[in-house]
Every structure is written in structure tokens, then in C-alpha cells.
């Protein structure tokens, strides 16, 4: 909240995303910052109605005061363990949460509030989801045809062929059925569908698990190209390594909130550049680093600690930590929610 407010005035004067030229710059982070954010999430909370015993009802807060923003041409990787609320954030943006969920906070898309009506209108057109697996394709329809149905304007066949050649899919592929595709090909087909729809915001939900190294590379390249053509990409993953390969910034999620947003360059060495103790622990636990776990577990939404959500597991803990959830603050070109971070 406090982070986003001062930036906002500045953004209003700036150019509209439409005017962006297709750029082939790999990581134009600095230019990006000046543009209006494609999507901006402020103070988002999502809670579910749950029943404890018998008829007693409780509101389970699974996402609490979460902030992120993604600019055109940028890839933001959302990293965190399962149950940290990554997928729910995607569902909240797309407006596909189950009926027992309550949402508060503010989501703006291109500067205007994203209401449920607008979500419905934009979903699949300007905001596209790249799902996890081929199971989301129609098993009985040739993939070329499926991609064509997503084309918004212009010649669908031409658009589909172009996008296939861009993603190194041979012309024969359009006549195949989903079950005939390899994992990497399927992923490229899924990305193609998002591309031809002309989406401005692409949300990729765990696009890589189960793929071998070569296919992961292929899939990630697709996303980089999308971003370079002016789209904003949100890459959801539990795997930092994947995120590091292509993202511009990384948002680290823990127990339903963003504990840190850091430029990708900070993830290196022993993690000295990182701001939050959780990100440091996550980085240190990688098999290629120290492979050292920290004790404990991510708190369940039904038993969140009163203060900082990471307090029970934190090595830097002081009595002040349990007083209140730390405000998000800007620190060294990133964001952190920790009173000790320097």
C-alpha cells in the first residue's frame, strides 16, 4: 500500500502501453518502471468460509494484504511453497475463485479497477492463463484449430501459422491431436493460444514441473518473447531456479502475502543481496547451495501468528516481531516486509 501510493502520481503522466514498440531488449527493467503498470494489486485479501465444528463458521484468511504490480514488457515471477497463495492470486485476478471466497482490496488493470464484469470481459482475451498441462486442451480437436479459435481479429489461419513458426512448431503440428504432443510441444501450443489472443497480461501457472531441462528452456523462451513484445507476464512457480532463468523481478510469497519483491540479480552467491530472512532461507535450501532446511512449516491459514508471519521460524526474531505484521517498505530497489531487513 505505502509502496504503491507515491509511485502512482508519477505514472499517470506517462505513455499508454499501446505505444510501446516491439523491443528486443532482454531485460529493460529501468524503462519498464516508468510505464503504467498492466496490473496492480494492492492490499488484496482473500478469505474462505470454513466450518470448524458443526455449524460454527470461520473466515479463513488465505491471502492477506498482498501487493504486486507488473509492467508491460516485464516478467514477474511469483515464488513460494504450495499453500502460500500463489495460485489463488491468479484466480483472484481472473475472477475464478470458488463461491465461498471473499475478496477485499484493490486490483487495477491498466489503471482502471478490475471489477467482476471487466474480469469476465477480459478473461481469455486481454488476460490469459497458460495452464499447467495439456489436459486443458480439447482432446478431440486438432491443436491448430484450437489455437485458431482463440484469434481475436484478422485471419485466424495466418495468425496460427505465424505463431507456430515463431515457436518452432512444424507446420504438421497443427494437424496433431493433444495426446500426440510431447510435453515441451504441448507447452508451446498452450503459449501460442495465449499469444494469438493478443493478451496483454499472461498468467502462467506452474508451467514447468515434469518437463526435462530442454523442454523447460523452450517453454521459458516463449514467455521471454511474449514479454519482449510488450505483454506483462506473471510466472507462478515453486521453483526459484526456473524463475531465475527469465524473470525480471521475483516476488517471494509466504503464508499468503508477499514478503519480498527483488530484482533477479539479487539471487546470487550466498544470498547477501536478499532482503527477507525467508527468501534467504529459500535460496540457501537449494540443492546447489547449502541444501539446509530451516525448522518448522508454513503456518496454516487457520493458525496464523499475530505478528510477522515468518516470526516462528525466523533466526533474527526479536520481541518486536510478534507485535504486528510488518508494513511493506521499499528497500534497495525492491520491497520487503521485515522490520530487520537492511
Amino acid at each position: 500500500m505505502s509502496l504503491a501510493a507515491p509511485l502512482k502520481k508519477e505514472k499517470k503522466k506517462l505513455i499508454k502501453p499501446k505505444q510501446i514498440e516491439v523491443q528486443k531488449i532482454m531485460k529493460p527493467v529501468k524503462d519498464i518502471k516508468k510505464l503504467q503498470a498492466t496490473i496492480e494489486v494492492q492490499d488484496l485479501s482473500v478469505s474462505f468460509i470454513q466450518y470448524t465444528k458443526g455449524l460454527q463458521q470461520k473466515d479463513l484468511k488465505v491471502i492477506s494484504s498482498l501487493n504486486i504490480d507488473i509492467h508491460p514488457g516485464e516478467i514477474l515471477a511469483v515464488v513460494g511453497s504450495s499453500g502460500s497463495g500463489k495460485s489463488l492470486l491468479a484466480h483472484a485476478i481472473l475472477g475464478i475463485l470458488p463461491s465461498n471466497a471473499t475478496v477485499t482490496g484493490k486490483i487495477t488493470y491498466k489503471g482502471e479497477p478490475l471489477t467482476s464484469k471487466r474480469q469476465e470481459k477480459l478473461r481469455g482475451k486481454e488476460i490469459a492463463l497458460v495452464p499447467q498441462s495439456v489436459n486443458y486442451l480439447d482432446p478431440l480437436m486438432r491443436v491448430g484449430k484450437q489455437v485458431r479459435t482463440a484469434v481475436k481479429d484478422g485471419d485466424p489461419i495466418k495468425a496460427q501459422r505465424e505463431v507456430f513458426s515463431r515457436y518452432y512448431l512444424k507446420p504438421e503440428v497443427e494437424n496433431l491431436f493433444p495426446f500426440q504432443l510431447s510435453g515441451g510441444m504441448a507447452r508451446r501450443v498452450l503459449v501460442s493460444t495465449a499469444v494469438v489472443s493478443g493478451a496483454q497480461l499472461i498468467i502462467a501457472d506452474e508451467p514447468t514441473p515434469g518437463l526435462d531441462t530442454a523442454s523447460v528452456k523452450e517453454a521459458l523462451k516463449c514467455f521471454r518473447e511474449l514479454a519482449d513484445h510488450g505483454a506483462a507476464v506473471m510466472l507462478i512457480s515453486h521453483d526459484i531456479e526456473t524463475a531465475l532463468k527469465i524473470a525480471d523481478r521475483i516476488a517471494v510469497f509466504y503464508a499468503g502475502t508477499t514478503v519480498e519483491v527483488a530484482p533477479v540479480e539479487d539471487f546470487k552467491g550466498k544470498g547477501e543481496g536478499l532482503r527477507h530472512p525467508y527468501s534467504k532461507a529459500l535460496w540457501g535450501a537449494l540443492p546447489q547451495n547449502d541444501f539446509m532446511p530451516i525448522a518448522g512449516f508454513q503456518p496454516l491459514p487457520s493458525a496464523l501468528p499475530p505478528g510477522c508471519l515468518f516470526e516462528p521460524r525466523c533466526s533474527m526474531v526479536t520481541p518486536d516481531c510478534s507485535k504486528a505484521q510488518p508494513e511493506a517498505r521499499t528497500l534497495r530497489n525492491g520491497m520487503v516486509r521485515c522490520i530487520h531487513a537492511t
Binding site: I49, G95, L97, T104, G105, I107, P113
Partner: peptide, 17 residues
């Protein structure tokens, strides 16, 4: 804080869960 209008919020009738 502003409550976003979403399809998911339905006030249960008669305030029953």
C-alpha cells in the same frame, strides 16, 4: 480499503451460513 465487486460474494439470505 475498498471492497471489489466480484461474482464470488453473495450475502447469504437470512444471515445463515
Amino acid at each position: 480499503m475498498k471492497v471489489i465487486e466480484t461474482t464470488t460474494i453473495k450475502t447469504p439470505y437470512l444471515k445463515l451460513n
